[in-house]
Write a protein that binds this DNA or RNA. Structure first.
Lengths: 191, 191
DNA sequence: CATGACTACTCATATCGATGACTATCGCTA
DNA sequence: TAGCGATAGTCATCGATATGAGTAGTCATG
C-alpha cells in the first residue's frame, strides 16, 4: 500500500478532517503524493478500522460537523516499519514527456501550448512552496533552521518539491522555445 | 489509457520486440515511464488487436524467434489525438519523500541510508542518460543539434530525465547530510 | 428567493498497474 | 554434463487508482 503511508505522514502534522486532507492532497498542494477525495475518505475509514488513526467528532456552528483524525501509537509503528523497508524506485509518469518524445512525427503546436501551460503551473506551485517554506522556518534563515529547527521533515520534503517544480518550469520553457524555433524554420522550408 | 501511448511513442524510434521494450522500460532506462514486462506484452497484444501496431516475425538462429512491432498509420493517428488532448498533471509518487516528510517522529538512520542509495542510483542513471544524449546528437554540439538535428524528441525527453536525476541526486545528498548532522547533535544531547 | 459556491462526505464501478509463478531455447562455463 | 544467465514470452490474480454521480447544509450575491 502506498496512499496509506502518505496519509499517515500528512496526519503527523496535526489533526485534520478528510476534507482538509483533500485540500492538502489536491493537485496543487501535495508535493509528494496525489489522491482524489474519494480515495482519501476510503483510506481514512480503513486506517481507523485498523486502529492506525483515531477520529474525533468536532461540532461546528454554521457549517457541517467534521471528524478529525490523529495518528495512534500503532500508526507510528506502521510508519516506522514503512520507513525501514527498502524504498521503491520513484515512479514518474508524465504524459507531457511522452508527447515530447514523440513530437518529431506529430504536430508540435499543441505540445508547445501544453509545455507553456505546464511551465505556468510549475511557476505557481513554486511560488506556493516558497511561501510554505518561509512559514515553516519562521524568522530563521534556511541553514540555521535545518540545523536547529524542531520539525525539518516537511521542510525537506517541500524542498524536493521546489527543485522539481523549478526544473519542470525551466525544461518546459526551453523545450517550448526549441520546438517553436524548429517549427518556424520548417514552415519557411515547405510553404 | 496511459501505458498505451508510452509504448506507441517508444515504437516510433524503430522496430522493437516485446523483450527489447522491457529493456527500454526497465527501471533504469525509461526516462518517462515504467512498466513491468507482463504489462508490456499485454499492451502489445491489445495494440495489435486494435490495429495501432503491426507485428512481424523475425526468425533468428541461435536464439528464440521474436516478433517486432511497428506503429501503423492508425497508431500515429492515436498518438496525434493523444498529443492534442490536454495533458494530465504530472503524478509524483515517491515513497522516499513521504519518509523524509515523517522523519521527525521516526528513526532517521534507515531514511538516511535510503537517501544515499537513491543518490547512487540517480548518479548512475544520469551517467547513462548522458551517454544516450551523446549518442543521439552524434558529433554536433547540443545547440546545433537542437536547431538542425532530425529527431529531437527523444533528446528533449532525455534532457528532462537528466534534470530530474541531477536534482534527485543533489537533494538526496543534501538531505542525508542535514539529517546526519542533526542525528549527531541529538545523540550528544541525550546519551 | 433562486442560484451558485463552499464545506463535508458517500457509493459504486471500471480501469490500471503490480506481482508471482511458469515455459522454453541457446550458449557458455565450471 | 549440469547449471547459470540471457533471450523471449505467457497466465492468472489482487490490490490500487481513477471517475462519475449523488447527498446535504450554509452562506453570500444578485
Amino acid at each position: 500500500m502506498a496512499l496509506k503511508h502518505a496519509v499517515l505522514a500528512a496526519l503527523l502534522g496535526g489533526e485534520y478532517s478528510g476534507y482538509q486532507l483533500t485540500k492538502i492532497f489536491d493537485v496543487g498542494v501535495s508535493n509528494f503524493w496525489y489522491a482524489a477525495p474519494q480515495q482519501l475518505y476510503a483510506e481514512l475509514t480503513r486506517l481507523e478500522a485498523d486502529g492506525l488513526i483515531t477520529g474525533r467528532e468536532v461540532v461546528q456552528k454554521g457549517r457541517p460537523n467534521k471528524r478529525v483524525f490523529t495518528v495512534t501509537e500503532a500508526g507510528l509503528g506502521e510508519l516506522t516499519a514503512f520507513a525501514a523497508a527498502p524504498a521503491k524506485p520513484l515512479l514518474i509518469r508524465d504524459d507531457l514527456v511522452v508527447k515530447v518524445h514523440a513530437v518529431d512525427r506529430l504536430d508540435p503546436a499543441p505540445v508547445i501550448a501544453q509545455l507553456r501551460e505546464r511551465a505556468r503551473e510549475a511557476a505557481a506551485k513554486l511560488d506556493l512552496f516558497r511561501q510554505i517554506l518561509a512559514r515553516l522556518r519562521g524568522d530563521l534563515d534556511e541553514e540555521t533552521f535545518l540545523r536547529e529547527g524542531e520539525h525539518v521533515g516537511p521542510y525537506l520534503s517541500c524542498l524536493a518539491g521546489c527543485r522539481l517544480e523549478r526544473e519542470t518550469h525551466d525544461w518546459c520553457l526551453q523545450t517550448a522555445r526549441t520546438l517553436t524555433e524548429r517549427a518556424a524554420r520548417t514552415e519557411g522550408r515547405t510553404p
